[in-house]
Design a protein around this nucleic acid. Structure first.
Length: 474
DNA sequence: TTTTGAGTTGTTCGA
DNA sequence: GTCGAACAACTCAAA
């Protein structure tokens, strides 16, 4: 007898319908498909900006599914398993399909879901799609995992990436739909307060927008990506991180577009592929050494004398963009106003916090997690540890970014700092003023404030950091 | 097992 | 202003 019970497709960080292995597999069975998102304790624990951005993505996915004659069923449950079981009970669904995630909390949740559902005779299947290379499938010649990027890149670059799948032609609806929560009742944007209205115009929500951007990027930008990407005042990057973070686009789709550009002889395309592989590398590391999320990846670095006070005045100045160092302050304002930060700027503010201010990298990690709409657990942790020196990298000892030197090199016309800094400026740009609408009122800052003097002189901070690195006893 | 070459993204100093 | 060298020693990955 042909099985006609519905399949639940459990969406999490895969908010798209094209190149979606789980959805495609569900549709190919010919059975009815019930797309579902469960707001559980893990999504509740997201930072303010990523949680708010998730809400935008969900609303968009719901719309996309509706256009296909389907729906997105929303449920709130502390434990996702409870909601899944309730839905299976209500709909007679005998199967749940989903796309795999790789952070320890998601793994713990999903492992248990799979175990319990299978134990009760239901089908529970996880699929790839979030990554091009499963973290356990890439091995060194001695069956270890990679700790250095370049060998990792060499190991994967020619192994082939699955071609992206088209969206399913049809998503069969169930005879009747189960009840759905109203997304508004979840208040996913509550912690954004005044910020949401400011940040929203900078969001590129949903798979259609992501595809449009990818096409534009490959048409107009990618050829010069290798050099352009270094200049935060230029439109020189893909801007796809927020979409990759929520799975509104798949890395396979990006890879294919990048390969095509490379075949067209666009010189910067390979560099784009390399950046995609950096994301894979971060996941590779998180899989093999999940402690990278919370503790020093390298032995000994827990003993390093970081300042660990999250409420220190220097930390507040850093968050507010009031360090007196223009490149740093502009970058911190960009983060607050747009929900993202240019890659080079991320390195500079991270270097400044961990070196000039000698502050624990976890304080920076947490602020990024609070503010970034493209927040990704693996990339964020790896990036911070890389900069701090406690993470995977070759020789961080003498690498202290000088934000003023960087300004001369990468923002020599001051396009970036002018765009985001208001203090001491005659007619500040719109984005610079927007910060004062978005920030918490208790900060009490005004665009009419004078621009601050450096809270730490760059040469003093640099020397202190280098001395501390040299003196460490491990 | 040992050896060899290399390691995303920098800065400064002196010629 | 431009350019090359020095800035530690170590770890990693493959030969």
């Amino acid at each position: 007898m042909h099985d006609t019970t519905p399949i639940l497709v459990w969406f999490r960080r895969d908010l798209r319908i094209s190149d979606h292995a789980a959805l495609t597999a569900a549709c190919e069975t010919g059975r009815p498909v019930i797309p579902v998102f469960i707001h559980d304790d893990l999504s509740e624990a997201l930072g303010a900006a990523p949680k708010w951005r998730l809400g935008l993505g969900l609303a968009h996915l719901a719309e996309t599914l509706r256009a296909q004659g389907s729906r997105l069923i929303l449920r709130r449950a502390a434990v996702a398993l409870d909601a899944l079981q309730a839905l299976m009970e209500e709909t007679g669904a005998g199967a749940v399909y989903w796309s795999r995630l790789y952070d320890p909390n998601s793994i713990a949740r999903d492992t248990k879901v799979k175990e319990i559902l299978r134990g009760q005779g239901s089908e529970a299947r996880s699929f790839g799609g979030h990554l091009m290379f499963e973290p356990w499938s890439v091995e060194t010649k001695t069956n270890g995992f990679y700790k250095v990027y370049t060998p990792f890149w060499n190991a994967v670059k020619n192994t082939g990436v699955d071609a992206p799948r088209p969206a399913p032609a049809q998503i069969a609806a169930p005879k009747s739909w189960p009840a759905s929560d109203e997304q508004d009742t979840w208040h996913l944007g509550r912690a954004m307060n005044r910020g949401a209205a400011v940040v929203e115009p900078f969001q590129q929500v949903g798979e259609q927008a992501a595809q449009v951007r990818l096409a534009h990027f490959c048409e107009e930008i990618i050829a010069n990506y290798k050099s352009l990407r270094d200049f935060p005042g230029e439109d020189g990057t893909s801007l796809l991180s927020q979409n990759l973070s929520l799975g509104e686009i798949s890395p396979h789709q990006c890879w294919q577009a990048g390969m095509r550009a490379m075949e067209q002889g666009k010189a910067g395309a390979e560099h784009f592929l390399k950046e995609l592989v950096w994301r894979e590398f971060a996941y590779h590391l998180m899989h093999h050494t999940p402690h990278i999320l919370d503790t020093a990846w390298r032995d000994g670095w827990e003993k390093f004398p970081w300042s660990t006070d999250p409420d220190a005045p220097n930390v507040l100045a850093w968050k507010q963009g009031r360090t007196g160092i223009p490149f740093v302050d502009a970058a911190m304002r960009e983060l607050y106003v747009t929900g993202r930060m240019h890659n080079r700027a991320r390195m500079i503010v991270a270097s400044y916090l961990t070196k000039h201010l000698m502050t624990d990298w976890r304080i920076g990690r947490d602020w990024f997690e609070h503010c970034l709409t493209d927040w990704d657990p693996a990339s964020n942790a790896m990036g911070w540890q890389w900069t701090a020196g406690s993470g995977p990298d070759a020789s961080p000892y003498f690498r202290v970014f000088n934000p003023d030197t960087q300004l001369d090199k990468f923002d020599s016309n001051r396009a970036y700092v002018n765009r985001f800094l208001a203090e001491g400026v005659q007619n500040p740009y719109k984005d610079a003023l927007a910060f004062f609408e978005a920030m918490p009122r208790r900060w009490g800052l005004s665009p009419d404030d004078p621009y601050p003097k450096p809270i730490v002189a760059l040469d003093v901070g640099r020397k202190r950091a280098l001395d501390a690195y040299a003196d460490r006893d491990f």
